[in-house]
Design a protein around this nucleic acid. Sequence first.
DNA 1: TAATATGCTTGCAAAATGCAAGCAAATATA
DNA 2: TATATTTGCTTGCATTTTGCAAGCATATTA
Lengths: 135, 135
Amino acid sequence: MTRRSNCPISNVLDFVGDKWSLLILRDLIFFGKRSYSELQNSDERMATNILSSRLERLEKDGLITKRADVNDKRKKVYALTQAGKDMLPIMLEMIIWSGKYDPATNAPEQLIDRAKSDREKLISELLESIESKHP
Amino acid sequence: MTRRSNCPISNVLDFVGDKWSLLILRDLIFFGKRSYSELQNSDERMATNILSSRLERLEKDGLITKRADVNDKRKKVYALTQAGKDMLPIMLEMIIWSGKYDPATNAPEQLIDRAKSDREKLISELLESIESKHP
DNA sequence: TAATATGCTTGCAAAATGCAAGCAAATATA
DNA sequence: TATATTTGCTTGCATTTTGCAAGCATATTA
């Protein structure tokens, strides 16, 4: 989206202020997904054309990268940039919010607790777990 | 938006996953706005029909309340519920992100620094400053 | 060599957004 | 007291975005 103002909140929303972009980043961070088909199979069932356009935009905006898979030439490997990884704290706060207000949340209690009281370590562990999947 | 899954991130996006809702909460928290016309005059210039529909939805979703103004019967007073206030940490993380990646951000350095290293106190101060405006 | 998997694109209908104008009730002004 | 202005919206319409379904080229597997 074109920049609406210099407000730091508005700015983030210009990048990921829609229903899908953060879910793609979530899948890359929390579920270790890397390919198009994996991303397509999330619980929320994003339409394939929307997924395609979001991936394009996230790449253009520097939040993810897209490479060819060396083993399977049909596949592409999607990965987070540092800017994309740095969206994680925003997501953790969302997890905390839902932990408080959504009785039906599927967030594990332990994750919510750690987001509250062991943030920094949780963040490094989650990001390290990505590294191990992107050798 | 209708609930797409039980994911805690998806859940928050179901409430505020659009370009405008969080900016309304921002204006209520950071700028102490309370009336329709004040909300209409943000830098991002939201269309009035969109503002109207978002306020309606935020109220229905329990993130804000709408009362009549006792002094001026034309006016309505919009205020945050606790659930709305609890979106603040999410916004603070957005401020931190923009502080790192947006060279043109208008976020005061002191705010960014405090969001990083003095969060809890910053949160209470911001929320208290709202109280004083909603006596 | 045929079947299947993968990562998309295309076409179209439906929904959401954005713009401009208008409008009733309350208040301020002359 | 009459008129103008402010406030908080609504309405109508054009544009953009989303969602659904089908299709398609290339690469891999059977």
